[in-house]
Nucleic acid binder design. Structure first.
Lengths: 203, 203, 203, 203
DNA sequence: AATGAATGAGGATTCATTCAT
DNA sequence: GATGAATGAATCCTCATTCAT
């Protein structure tokens, strides 16, 4: 996480630096982006970088957190509505739409995720794991509930199912977006996917 | 692909170089392995490297092909037996066992795959895509057949299903092995996975 | 020497800064201690440092003076007692004991001396010379007296002798302490040393 | 120690590099000399330095060894002559003369020693200790012999005596030379020194 | 007087690739 | 074809000091 010095910076300077970093990470990925790159694009002096951040990862992680916060905003609405009481598979496409909207509204954040999955840097490998574990928890919660309520067959391993769902929403979605898939393609893909899983899992 | 000069090398020298490269790629991944590393471990002169290979990727790709060849050997048996006529989902765990055996017998090749998925190098990103496309074709072939024969519901999108299967066999399996999963864990995981997909897809 | 601003600081703030500097100089030596180090550990703002001191050397020198003052306290007693009238070599082990006690009571000051002798900084090299010259004067005073009184042979060059003594008390003692010598070892070492010098010098 | 690559270099190139490093170390001391300095003066490319040496210390140590070799040449003559059979204190001024001659003939090597004693670099501190231990052994050998033969009093601790001698020949001599002492001064100083030690130690 | 952000020169090190022998 | 030395751009990071508030 950035230093206090960075936090105390005027908002527009912070923005400028964040934007510069985001731009470079988007363009070259985590591993190939250098601190020099960020310094150059943001226009801050070499030494300042180290007064703001501990390392390249520090910046990357900050942006990742920003992305998560923004994502949360998108999901909050649906998670706090009453709809959420419906069986998960009835709601899943609606959730997918939200995810897709987020990705389209903030493609730079989306791409951050893409590069996260394609880094070989130790520090990144580490958080990828953490992200994955965290990401599985969300569908797991609803699936558990649905299983209790009898919507989902009792002999289904919901952890496995949650993982399959997360893989779709997390990794594959990002991958397809990166490869230029259109909204229609993505929605079609998701529907087919859900179709199989739903039938495989529901009572 | 390596130069003719490399191909003409005495077999044991070739082996030595391959082993050295494999060792380093396993240890540090594609991105972080340097040509110096390979040169040092293999004991060949710096200049020779460039007489044998065009680039680091050249070596990596060669090893990847080696790995594929070896993998093919494992699968040939099952693919050429009569069993293969059975419905895919009846056979899938047997196929999984073969895949697992291969991974256990050739962990260095397995790890190559792992690092392939964690590289941000342009050249690697490119072949990852090709690998994925290629990898999906295999299950697709059988699923198509099964759908025709009526084993699989006609309203299922088999491409999607093939992709889900490939994700399991390709990416996730490698990931779990990398994280130290035991054979038992992996088999259990695969079974649960197949359980859902089978029920989701079969008539 | 520190600025007046520093002198006017509340006593405990001064102490805090001194302790911080002493800690760092002890840990890393003069050359490798940075102003950043001192600023960080003492908790004072970066800019304040330059309001209190002119340079890193300024702080170091201040501490060196502190050390000298403290050392003087230890020696005052013996120098002001009547014992001091005895021939120097009869008293020398007693003096040594005082020196040793001081080193054990104030190891941080002792270490300061150690690092002074291991600096290559111009400013430090300069005061090392001054310290050495000053340090030789002390034994010289007594040896001169003793020579006049006939305790020491008249053909002895007492300057040389004084220097030999200073080397023992100043440099070597600190060195041995630094290498972890015990009190017993040090006393034994000093005794043997004195034995030779005494017989070499006395009538 | 330098790499084989360095050893294989044409003699005059090696000389050029050695001379450049020696010049810089003489001028600025070990701690303040940078690899850039050496690179600039020797005219070799930045990268070559690292093909020749592991570190700055590597170069320094190499020069130190060179100095030791040269010193040995000077001492060999006297150590292999029959004179050496004479009591050490009868010979000591002759030995001193040789040491002095060496220092005058190779002042750059002498200065290397000076800076060695004024470094705070960990690696250097380490070899200083080794040098000191090694250096004490030489006089010790002769003193032991003399004590056996009855030239030196049996109650003298010859280790201590050896140390005193080494301090004179090793550290102090270099120090005085560095401060600009003339040959006459040095010889006078040594004589007075020996005078005290001889009388203090001999039977 | 106190504060702490800004600055950029300068150090170490690595690496892919070329080239002369 | 084999060899291994040469090269210098590019990276990371630290630091003393200044300056505006």
């Amino acid at each position: 996480m950035p230093t206090k010095t960075f936090e105390n910076l005027p908002e527009d300077k912070k923005k400028r630096i964040k934007r510069a970093a985001l731009e470079k990470f988007n363009e070259k990925g985590y591993d190939d982006t250098t601190i020099s790159d960020i310094v150059k694009v943001s226009g801050i002096p070499r030494g300042s970088f180290y007064q703001y951040f501990e390392s390249k990862f520090d910046v990357f992680y900050m942006l990742l957190v920003d992305a998560q916060m923004k994502k949360l905003e998108y999901f909050t609405e649906i998670f706090e509505s009453e709809k959420i009481e419906a069986p998960f598979f009835d709601l899943v496409m609606e959730i997918f739409d939200v995810a897709l909207k987020y990705l389209r509204d903030y493609p730079e954040y989306s791409r951050l995720g893409y590069w996260m999955y394609h880094s070989s840097a130790f520090e990144v490998l580490e958080i990828v794991e953490r992200f994955d574990q965290e990401g599985v928890k969300n569908p797991l919660h609803f699936l558990k509930r649905d299983q209790k309520r009898g919507h989902i067959r009792s002999d289904i391993d919901i952890k496995t199912l949650a993982r399959m769902l997360f893989n779709l929403f997390g990794r594959e979605l990002i991958d397809m977006v990166e490869k230029g898939a259109s909204d229609e393609e993505l929605i079609r893909f998701a529907k087919k996917h859900m179709d199989i899983l739903k039938r495989g899992a529901e009572n």
